[in-house]
Simulated assay, not measured.
Amino acid sequence: MAHCQSRACWFGLGLLSGAVAACLYAWLAQGVRRDAGTCAAAAGRADREYALDTDPLAEAEAATDIIEYRGFVIHVFCRALGGGRFRAVCDIWDSGAVALEGGSPPSTYPTPEEARVATIAWARQWVQHNG
């Protein structure tokens, strides 16, 4: 542990640890690949039947999109609901903390791409009104 006698020293240690955390996050974010079929994982599971009232956060899975907008980080998750319907939900992060968990437009979509686009638009509006 560092031996600091002044507030300036502690402030400097705080900045340093924040910079290290930001570098780690940037390094991890580079490992996330977005391919052309951003919700392909959800589309591939379309044959699995989910009830329409299933909790969209019940299954943990990797985000299909990670977007930065106005300093917020938006993680989009796609779900196949069955019957050719898809839903996407998002978590919105601000300064490393969850600002909103499981937000989404209140409808389902016929394709995973439409669900993804609608959820990203919904998240951007949320940031504009709450950020």
Rank of each mutant, 00 (worst) to 15 (best):
G44D: 07
R48V: 15
Q128H: 10
L16A: 13
F72P: 00
T119R: 01
G131H: 05
E114Y: 04
V127E: 04
I120E: 14
L28C: 04
C23T: 11
T111W: 00
P110R: 06
G84R: 08
G71R: 09
Y25A: 13
D47I: 05
C23S: 10
P56S: 06
G14W: 12
L28Q: 08
F86W: 05
E114D: 13
G103N: 13
D53T: 12
V98T: 14
A22Q: 12
G96R: 06
A42N: 02
F72I: 01
V117P: 01
T64H: 12
R87W: 02
G103S: 13
L24E: 00
A29M: 12
A118Q: 14
G131A: 05
T111D: 00
R33G: 02
G82V: 09
S107G: 10
R34D: 00
D91I: 01
L16Y: 12
W93H: 02
N130T: 15
V76A: 03
A26S: 15
H3K: 06
A8V: 15
E68S: 15
A63T: 09
A42C: 13
D47W: 13
Q30E: 09
S17I: 13
L81Q: 02
G96K: 07
V127M: 02
R124S: 01
L16E: 11
C4S: 04
A99C: 13
G82L: 04
A36M: 11
A58S: 15
C39W: 02
Q30D: 06
I120A: 01
L13W: 08
D94M: 03
A40D: 15
T111K: 01
D55W: 08
V127C: 05
Q128G: 00
A62I: 14
T111I: 07
I66F: 03
S95T: 13
V98N: 05
G44V: 06
P56Y: 04
V117L: 12
T54W: 04
P106M: 02
A63N: 07
A118Y: 08
G37K: 11
G71L: 12
D47C: 03
E101R: 13
L24V: 07
G31L: 07
A123T: 12
T111R: 03
Y50C: 09
